[in-house]
Each structure stands twice: as structure tokens, then as C-alpha cells.
Design a protein around this nucleic acid. Structure first.
Length: 468
RNA sequence: GGCCCCGUCGUCUAGCGGUUAGGAUCCAUGGUUUUCAUCCAUGUCACAGGAGUUCAAUUCUCCUCGGGGUCACCA
């Protein structure tokens, strides 16, 4: 069974890059009928917070990415790590190092001065004398001194490292006994049964160290997939310092989970020419072997397009529910269908859609100057009056009713459609853009329509008087 | 700097020795529309450079250049 994982350290919100690797891991587990588990890497007590953990969980909930089983917290597993550290110590595969921080710093500075690679010199690797007084030792693992470590990576291929180039006896437990990252990752991944590790390729150079741990414990390696970074527009690794990388910010901006996930799955991964993927399709088609080798630049142009696409294809009742989040309650509005049908074609985000609806529902306070100039240069007022008369007398319920009324005026007065359309648009919306006015009228109703027409006429007439 | 990874339109990508180098997005133009948006159509734009290998290289190899990642008692 395929078991994948997502292992964030709770130092802040969930960001786009993390979400993408989480998505890849999730999809791959689902595709194989396996498990996707969550591990919170909260060993650095100073930088971690419970709020951050909750924020990450909340983001997962919003996106509908469910993890399997209980969440593992590294902070609760000290006993386990201690046990394996002791085992390695007992087996002579790890040892206590009494080098002080000062001594270590000195060593490093000397190496740097000689333009050598900075590495631990193995002073205590085979030490059996009396340890120096007053120093709490760290535990170092005995790493191979020579030879080759090959990372068999499902994305990058076989990547080989020379032991003498990259390895030294790295610390697996600090002076206070706390285990270090590369050690606990290997322990946890193994113990949690994780056999397919999908993570950012910034971890590729950590992998040899983790392999050292696996080897020391005699464990089988998982399959690794190192996915390329997402870069910002400067070409650097996308970080929390880059704007708009908080996943939940996308909810606030009015993006749908479907759009965001679809956008992210196509960043660094593709399936031929296909652009639109439902969650079901992603689960069916995703395969980490199709992940790109090169980094991609984060650019949300396509996200907007996808979001618009998903809004267009969302049923109205669901849309109405989603819109509540953006301060728009129209569940009881009798023209809900007409309204949403007209607006879902024109909004890029849910937030924008909510604003568009409000624009229609609220009587314009002022009129766009340019629009007025364009719309009211002829006998617009008399045309509006004629239309007003038709309204009073005629049937008016559906957009088509209003449209028919407009047609009548146009025919009778022998004018173009624009002659009535433009002033009416200004009366209703206060500007030139916007949805079809017959829809607007149907939504706000006959009374409000007449009110808005009267208002614009009054405004225009008073202005004419003023300029005279 | 050492080690490692990467390099196709502005951006996301297809390509896996022989293609008019494809799609999407963005942008531009035209059509549709009373307006705007949608939608439809059309167009502009790419194999980093140089050597090899080969009848043939975007594709394989090497070098150069460029970009990125990583080098902790952080994760």
C-alpha cells in the first residue's frame, strides 16, 4: 500500500508551495488506494505555535484535503527518538562528541580560511579517553567517510553524492538531548510506514543524511520524489515573505478550492494538453513520474481564468451558499436564478461577484459623467418617459418582458436600440458597463426601476436648469 | 566557494532522433452584445550558446553561460 505524508513545521500559515506538495502526496495516495498522513514537525518549541497548526488544518479543511488516521506530533515522540539514539550508541554507530561550540566555531573558521569545506573533523569518533569536564555532549552519527550515496529519485533520476564531499558525522541529538531534523524525519517516516516521500527539492541535499540514518538502522528506503520549487517573479524560492502565499488568503480573495487546486496541480505537472481537472480526474491521472524537473515561476494569471471557469460551471444554489461568505445573502431573493445566471459569466472571483450583485441591488448614488454625456445627448429623457409609461401599463416580470417593452418603444419611436439602452443603463446602474439591463430590471422589479428612471430624469433636468 | 539540481513562447506546459515545434494563459485584432464581460475566430511570441555523436538533433554526450537549491546543536 502506498503511504504518503505531508510534514509541515508549524511556524505560520500553510503556503502555496507546501500546499502543492501536499496535494501531490494526497493525489498519489488516493490514486493508489493508499493513505495520506499528516505529521506536525514541532520540535523547535521556540518557533512553533498551536495557532499555526490550527491554521494549517483549517486550510486543509477548506480545500477538502483529508488526511488519514491520527495526526502525528513530533513533540510527543521524544521517548521514541531517545530509544533509537540509545540503540545507535549501543551498537557503536553513534557516539558522544564533547567538542564545545567555541571549538567547533574555531574549527570552521580555520577551514574557511583554508578554503576547505567546513565539516566536523571526527575528533571524538573513536574517542575512548576521559571526556573533558563541564561539557554536555552532543550525539553524532558515524557517517561513511568514503563511497557514494545514491538517491534514487522518481523525479530527478539517480542523483549521486560522494560521501567525502557532503557527509560528516552530523549531530543527531543536541546537548540537551533533543533530536535533530534529519534524524527524526528518517525515524518517523519509517515508523509511520511511509514508503513514498514527495517533498520539495530543497530537501534533495538532505536526503543523503537521512539515508545514513536508514542504513544505520537497517531499514529500507522509501521511494523519493523531489519536486522542483515554485519561484517568485525574482526567480527565488517562494517563501512566506512573498505576498499572497497564504492559502487562506485565496479564500478571502474569492477563489474556489477547485480552481486553486486545479491551478496548483498544473504547476510542475501536466497530463498532455489538459488544463481542467476535477478532483476525480486529478486522482485518476496524477502520477509523480510526470512531474517536471525544472522550477516554475508563480504567476496567478491562469488562476484567474480557472476561477472564472469554475464559477461559471457552479450551480446557482451552491453559488448562493458560497456567496454568503462574501457578505451576500440572497437565498430568499425571488430572482436569484436570473441574477446569478447573469453574473456568474462576468465575475473572476466570488468576492467580485458579490460586489457586482450589490451594485445591482443598490440605487446608484451618482452617475458617471462620461456615461451621462454619451447617453443623454439626444432626446433621451422623452425616450425614458415613454418607456416609463410602457412599464406602468405593461406586464413586467421576466427579463424578456422588459426586453419586449424596450422593443416596443424602439419600434414606435423609430430609434436604434442604443437610444434607449444607454440612458436606461445609466438610470439603473449609473454607468455604462454591467449586465444586461433587462436582467437588472427583472431583478430589482418594476417599482424600483421606475424609481431609478425618475431619479435620473430629475437629476438631468435640474442640471439643465442649472446650466441655463 | 564546495556539492547538487535545472534551462522550449512573458507565464504554465506538450515533445521523449525526422513535427509547418503543439496546447493553455496573457496581450493584440475582428465578430457577437444597447454597454461591459462572456463566448467565438484570428494573430504576435520559444528550443540559452558552442562543440561533438548521427544520414538527421529541441530531443543523446561534453563544455560554456545563466538560474536555483543546499551546506547548523533550524526545520
Amino acid at each position: 500500500m502506498v503511504v504518503t505524508r505531508f510534514a509541515p513545521s508549524p511556524t505560520g500559515y500553510l503556503h502555496i508551495g507546501g500546499l502543492r506538495t501536499a496535494l501531490f502526496s494526497y493525489l498519489w495516495a488516493k490514486k493508489n488506494g493508499g493513505k495520506f498522513v499528516l505529521r506536525i514537525e514541532d520540535t523547535d518549541k521556540a518557533r512553533n505555535s498551536e495557532e499555526a497548526t490550527q491554521a494549517i488544518l483549517k486550510a486543509f479543511e477548506w480545500l477538502g484535503l483529508e488526511h488519514d488516521g491520527e495526526i502525528t506530533y513530533q513533540s510527543q515522540r521524544d521517548a521514541i527518538y531517545t530509544k533509537y539514539i540509545q540503540q545507535l550508541l549501543d551498537e557503536g554507530k553513534a557516539y558522544k562528541c564533547y567538542m564545545s561550540k567555541e571549538e567547533l566555531t574555531e574549527l570552521r573558521e580555520m577551514q574557511m580560511a583554508n578554503k576547505e569545506r567546513t565539516k566536523y573533523n571526527g575528533k571524538y569518533r573513536d574517542f575512548d579517553g576521559n571526556p573533558p569536564e563541564g561539557i554536555e555532549p552532543v550525539i553524532r552519527i558515524k557517517a561513511p567517510l568514503t563511497g557514494e550515496i545514491v538517491v534514487r529519485d522518481g523525479v530527478k533520476g539517480n542523483v549521486s553524492f560522494q560521501a567525502q564531499d557532503i557527509l560528516d558525522d552530523f549531530v543527531i541529538a543536541r546537548a540537551d538531548g533533543a533530536p535533530t531534523y534529519n534524524f527524526v524525519v528518517a525515524i518517523d517516516d519509517h515508523l509511520m510506514g511511509i514508503n513514498e516521500v514527495i517533498r520539495g527539492d530543497d530537501h534533495l541535499s538532505n536526503t543523503p543524511k537521512q539515508i545514513v540514518v536508514y542504513d544505520a538502522l537497517g531499514w529500507d528506503l522509501p521511494k523519493f520524489y523531489h519536486v522542483p520549487m515554485i519561484h517568485n517573479s525574482n526567480g527565488k524560492k517562494l517563501s512566506k515573505r512573498d505576498g499572497a502565499t497564504d492559502v487562506m488568503a485565496y479564500k478571502e480573495m474569492g477563489y474556489t478550492p477547485e480552481a486553486l487546486l486545479n491551478f496548483l496541480v498544473r504547476l510542475g505537472w501536466s497530463h498532455g494538453d489538459q488544463e481542467i481537472f476535477s478532483m476525480e480526474e486529478m486522482q485518476e491521472l496524477f502520477n509523480p513520474k510526470d512531474i517536471n524537473k525544472s522550477a516554475s515561476i508563480y504567476n496567478t494569471e491562469k488562476l484567474d481564468w480557472l476561477n472564472a471557469h469554475y464559477i461559471k460551471s457552479t450551480p446557482n444554489d451552491i453559488l448562493a451558499e458560497l456567496l454568503v461568505e462574501y457578505g451576500l445573502t440572497l437565498t430568499s431573493h425571488d430572482k436569484k436564478e436570473v441574477l446569478l445566471d447573469a453574473l456568474k459569466e462576468r465575475a473572476k472571483t466570488l468576492k467580485e461577484m458579490a460586489e457586482l450583485v450589490k451594485e445591482i441591488l443598490v440605487t446608484p448614488e451618482s452617475y458617471d459623467e462620461k456615461a451621462v454625456k454619451k447617453a443623454f445627448k439626444g432626446d433621451a429623457i422623452s425616450i425614458l418617459n415613454a418607456f416609463g409609461a410602457k412599464l406602468t401599463a405593461g406586464k413586467s416580470h421576466l427579463p424578456s418582458d422588459y426586453h419586449a417593452l424596450m422593443e416596443e418603444v424602439v419600434t414606435e419611436m423609430e430609434i436604434g436600440f442604443g437610444k434607449i439602452g444607454m440612458p436606461l443603463r445609466v438610470a439603473l446602474l449609473g454607468k455604462m458597463g454591467g449586465p444586461n439591463i433587462d436582467v437588472v430590471m427583472a431583478v430589482i422589479g418594476k417599482e424600483e426601476t421606475m424609481l431609478r428612471i425618475a431619479k435620473v430624469i430629475a437629476t438631468q433636468e435640474s442640471q439643465e436648469t442649472a446650466t441655463r
